[in-house]
Amino acid sequence: MSAFDRRVSIECVLIMVVLLSSSKGGMSEEVHVKVSKSVQLHVEVTNSLEGNSDLTVSCENIDPTQHLLQSNASYQWDYSGSLPFSKPPFFCSFRWGLQDHIYNLVVPLWDFDCKQHCHWVIRESGPCKYYSTKLVCFKWLKT
């Protein structure tokens, strides 16, 4: 199973758990989901757009500042705290030209390798992340 398929499968399971736990009828037991725990992360984003395009990155839940990255430039956040599902700190927007996309750069249920440093490479087709030495790319989330 590819990393993308695994991520989609886990998202589907989470959605089902949330829907089942929020329904008032049909279940006799409560479903509890552990929301978050405290973590320390370094999350880095590198602009790898074609044609020397500038990239604006904004992760409003962690930092209200919009960061303008020129071609091949990077920005890094150092983060200590919890990763709540309701307000994920690394749910970010990415803008260049007339393009506007969103993506959640850190999801604690499957980003086990992100404990200390996550390095994302932003391309037109979607964000890519290094898993050890292998670059794995994902599709942008639908807005």
Results as ranks from 00 to 15, higher is better:
residue 3 A to W: 15
residue 4 F to N: 13
residue 6 R to F: 15
residue 10 I to D: 04
residue 10 I to G: 05
residue 15 I to R: 14
residue 15 I to D: 15
residue 17 V to Q: 09
residue 19 L to S: 00
residue 21 S to A: 15
residue 21 S to Y: 04
residue 23 S to I: 04
residue 23 S to W: 00
residue 24 K to T: 15
residue 25 G to M: 09
residue 31 V to F: 00
residue 32 H to N: 08
residue 32 H to S: 07
residue 33 V to L: 13
residue 33 V to I: 14
residue 33 V to F: 15
residue 36 S to P: 01
residue 36 S to R: 02
residue 38 S to C: 06
residue 43 V to T: 09
residue 44 E to F: 00
residue 46 T to G: 01
residue 46 T to H: 03
residue 47 N to F: 03
residue 47 N to W: 01
residue 47 N to Q: 07
residue 49 L to D: 02
residue 49 L to N: 01
residue 49 L to P: 04
residue 51 G to I: 05
residue 53 S to R: 11
residue 53 S to T: 03
residue 54 D to H: 13
residue 55 L to P: 04
residue 55 L to W: 01
residue 57 V to I: 14
residue 58 S to P: 01
residue 59 C to T: 02
residue 59 C to F: 05
residue 60 E to S: 10
residue 61 N to A: 10
residue 63 D to M: 07
residue 63 D to W: 02
residue 64 P to I: 08
residue 65 T to D: 12
residue 66 Q to W: 06
residue 69 L to Q: 01
residue 69 L to T: 10
residue 71 S to H: 12
residue 74 S to E: 12
residue 76 Q to N: 09
residue 76 Q to E: 11
residue 77 W to P: 09
residue 78 D to N: 09
residue 80 S to I: 03
residue 83 L to S: 01
residue 84 P to K: 04
residue 86 S to P: 01
residue 87 K to E: 12
residue 88 P to M: 05
residue 88 P to Y: 03
residue 89 P to R: 02
residue 90 F to I: 09
residue 91 F to I: 04
residue 92 C to K: 03
residue 93 S to K: 15
residue 94 F to N: 00
residue 98 L to D: 13
residue 99 Q to G: 02
residue 102 I to G: 07
residue 102 I to W: 11
residue 103 Y to M: 06
residue 106 V to S: 00
residue 115 K to C: 02
residue 119 H to L: 13
residue 120 W to H: 10
residue 122 I to L: 10
residue 122 I to V: 13
residue 128 C to W: 01
residue 130 Y to A: 02
residue 132 S to V: 09
residue 132 S to N: 10
residue 132 S to F: 08
residue 133 T to R: 11
residue 134 K to I: 04
residue 134 K to D: 12
residue 135 L to A: 11
residue 136 V to F: 05
residue 137 C to I: 08
residue 138 F to L: 14
residue 139 K to I: 07
residue 139 K to L: 13
residue 140 W to I: 04
residue 141 L to G: 09
residue 141 L to T: 12
residue 142 K to T: 12
residue 142 K to S: 12
